[in-house]
């Protein structure tokens, strides 16, 4: 690991000052960043530890439920407000990583984690995300875990988070602070597709930091489900995961929210399928149709073709659970 400086400022203003300098990097739980530094994938000159900031609160607010960026994944997954209002989020959190990691990992860090693409992690391999211009090792290589939606010729990596899939489905917003003040963006617009710049995972600008999230109140709590299909029962990234939330009135779906993980460079919201489900009855047939709609535009590569079949199966199964059919 390259030698680096380590500071832990006492105020948000001091953090913003510190991260304004090139080569600086925020560290919170460090569950991903430290690995990346050990592997030489990321080599910051200076780590800005933000754990002194008062950003670990969970409280109701005019915008719904507010979650501070330093809230631990484990704390959030067991919080009574979350369990009551947004059980989908708790399910997704508990599907991620391991208890040990969730005890260290923060909400903001979870959003900022990098892809687990093997080519990104191995500095002897080509990777446009790690070293722009070197090519994409995964494109013609071992791409079983890789994207079927929204990829570019530069990058077919996927975002590894479970939590973010639930937050995308729940219409969360992200509060971001910079030297010029605060701004709020929809969670679905926080992460980005690789396009010509796969080195950029999200729309957080240089010198900005995440302060927290807000999840608007909704009527999904009785009918939501997070289904993660993976190679083993715990501590494995998703082959495909689905966050499904339904608001049901008189046996009919009033509105639906759906997002997928393990299929794209960002949590993949299924707007067309949601639209289709609005006003529909809770039937397996409708769920299957919604799942098929969600697959339009999917593109498989050598080793991930199974996702073209697995993704709709997972969507339908998650909807069956959310709708109480299982």
């Amino acid at each position: 690991m390259k030698q680096f400086q380590y500071v832990h400022p006492a105020s948000q203003a001091a953090v913003l000052d510190a991260i304004a300098k090139p080569g600086s990097k925020i560290i919170a739980g460090g569950t991903n960043l430290v690995d990346l530094m050990k592997k030489g994938v990321m080599s910051p000159d200076k780590l800005i530890d933000i754990n002194n900031l008062p950003l670990n609160t969970i409280n109701t607010s005019p915008n719904g439920l507010h979650i501070g960026a330093l809230t631990l994944n484990s704390v959030l997954s067991e919080n009574s407000l979350v369990l009551d209002k947004h059980p989908l989020l708790a399910m997704a959190l508990k599907a991620g990583a391991s208890p040990q990691l969730r005890n260290m990992a923060t909400v903001g860090g979870n959003m900022m984690q990098r892809t687990r693409c093997a080519y990104f992690y191995d500095t002897a391999m080509p990777c446009n995300k790690r070293a722009p211009g070197t090519g994409c090792g995964a494109m013609g290589g071992y791409n079983r875990m890789h994207a079927i939606f929204g990829a570019s010729p530069q990058c077919i990596a996927v975002h590894p988070s479970d939590m973010c899939v639930a937050l995308a489905a729940l219409d969360a917003t992200v509060t971001i602070a910079g030297k010029k003040g605060e701004r709020r963006i929809p969670f679905t617009e926080f992460h980005r597709l690789p396009g010509e710049h796969p080195e950029m995972d999200n729309h957080l600008a240089a010198g900005e930091m995440i302060l927290g999230l807000d999840i608007p109140d909704n009527n999904f709590s009785k009918n939501s489900y997070y289904l993660k299909v993976r190679d083993r029962q715990s501590y494995a990234f998703a082959l495909v995961s689905v966050a499904a939330a339904l608001e049901i009135q008189g046996g009919v779906i009033k509105q639906a929210r759906l997002a997928m993980g393990g299929v794209a460079h960002k949590p993949w919201r299924l707007f067309d399928a949601e639209k289709f489900l609005a006003g529909k009855a809770l039937t397996e047939e409708n769920f299957n149709k919604a799942a098929q709609l969600a697959m339009l535009g999917a593109k498989a590569r050598e080793y991930n073709a199974f996702k073209i079949k697995l993704a709709p199966a997972t969507i339908a199964e998650a909807l069956k659970h959310a709708g109480g059919l299982v």
Binding site: R116, A118, Y119, M125, G141, R232, S234
Partner: peptide, 28 residues
């Protein structure tokens, strides 16, 4: 689960760690 995978273009392992080379965990 277990399978050590080489990218034959490079002759190099692509899952040489415990996150990607799966062995059963308690839940399995």
């Amino acid at each position: 689960m277990e399978e050590a995978i080489i990218d034959h273009r490079y002759g190099r392992f692509v899952n040489n760690n415990f996150a990607d080379y799966h062995v059963p965990v308690n839940a399995d």
